[in-house]
Simulated assay, not measured.
Amino acid sequence: MDAEALRTFVTVAETGHFQAAADELGISQQAVSKRIAALERHLGVMLLVRTSRGSRPSPDGQVFLPYAKKVLVVVEQAEQAVRPGSRPLRVDVLNRRISPAQAVYRFHRSHPERELDVVTLSSENAAQAAQAVLEGTVDASFRALAADQVPAGISVERLMDAPLELLVGPGHPLADATHVRPAELAGHRIWIPGITPGTEWAAFYRTLSGAFGLSIDALGPDFGPEALMDTLAESNSLATLVGRGDRYLWPRAHDLRRIPLSDPTPVYPHVLLFRSGDQHPVLTALRAYLGTAGPRCPQDVWAPEWVGAAYRTTEPAGTN
């Protein structure tokens, strides 16, 4: 049933004249007549009685009128529910500890009036996350998506290059270093539990290992970040890698050290995925915020070539 025909019938019934309804709806009187005629044919009844003084609902029209009004209210509510900005922006941040989540959190702190729904599709790889964006499960996602895997209908912006840091315990040979070159990590075991095969972060660490001759593994059970911090504090040989904007907490007695990597600085390229043409005002505001917030990355950076230099790269939004 045509909602505009319903709206026209209700307007004629309330104004009592086809021309008055046409003026109120911003259409011609002929269009009003066509809509009413089509609605009456569809229902198989006469809805309006035409007289020299105007029009009034017929007995069938009187029965139909309150239902037509209810339908129009529901239609308006349905339209309002999906208008840009009428619902929270649903953003996948992958993991609530890492820099995209922290950047979105700072955006929310700066713009508390902007409604957000933050989720983690952590079990999905980048291609699956892109499909979730395309299907509308989420509005946007932070992923290191290979340039040749971007599906049609998805726009991408490389908005957050997160510099990597070495995280070690006080007994590690590099614990007192002010910075470390990636090549100097050769021969040291870098343990990153929880690397899921087939994900973009697994591909990232595999590429990083090959580029600098590193030993990165995820051997053993993953008991979570707190257990990782405990293990590092007790070990004289284990190290892990974290992003500069990642948020990890540990007891003061652990005395863990975050050491910047430089010459070059490996960065994890968090690419924002969103549906092409999405006009959600919170998405627009978030993109603008991420494009300006945070310090500049060093000039000498390393990132996997498969991420794609064609993405628009801006300043990272994550710091500690």
Rank of each mutant, 00 (worst) to 15 (best):
A162M: 12
H188G: 11
V307Q: 04
P59N: 04
V307D: 02
M1S: 12
R252M: 15
P84R: 09
F107G: 07
A147S: 05
V75Q: 11
P260M: 09
I259S: 03
L286I: 12
V45K: 13
L145C: 07
P304H: 08
R50I: 02
Q30Y: 01
V301R: 10
K69V: 14
T120C: 15
R97N: 11
H280M: 02
F107D: 08
G308H: 06
Q62D: 06
F142C: 11
S86K: 06
Q29T: 09
V93A: 10
P304Q: 03
L256N: 07
T231N: 01
F223I: 03
L39I: 09
L94R: 08
P197T: 04
T120L: 05
R244A: 14
K69H: 01
H254F: 13
A146I: 00
S86W: 01
T284R: 13
T11H: 01
M46N: 14
F64N: 02
I36A: 11
F204M: 05
G85Y: 07
A303E: 15
R56H: 05
A211E: 15
S110G: 06
I195F: 03
A20H: 13
D92I: 01
D246V: 07
D139L: 08
A132H: 02
V73I: 14
R275D: 00
P193G: 04
L6A: 06
P182Y: 02
V180F: 05
E315V: 15
R143Y: 10
D255P: 01
P264V: 01
H111M: 07
T11I: 02
V282K: 08
R258A: 12
L185N: 00
S86Y: 00
R114H: 15
L241Q: 08
T8F: 07
L48C: 10
L89N: 11
T313I: 14
L47H: 03
L39G: 07
G85C: 08
Q80T: 10
A31C: 08
G153N: 09
W201A: 00
P151Y: 03
S58R: 00
P59E: 13
D263Q: 13
G198M: 01
D92Q: 06
A285E: 13
I195A: 05
R296V: 05
R275N: 03
L94Y: 08
P66V: 10
A239H: 02
T8N: 11
Q149D: 10
P163V: 03
G26N: 06
L286T: 06
H280S: 11
Q149N: 09
T15S: 08
L228Q: 14
D278H: 07
Q80K: 15
D230N: 15
A103Q: 10
L273Y: 06
I192A: 07
S52W: 00
H111R: 11
E124N: 03
I195S: 04
A5M: 04
L167H: 08
S110E: 13
Q131R: 14
A152P: 03
P266I: 03
D300C: 05
R109C: 12
R181F: 02
E4C: 02
A126N: 00
D230F: 06
E113F: 01
S215T: 14
R56D: 00
Q131C: 01
G169N: 05
V156P: 04
P57L: 12
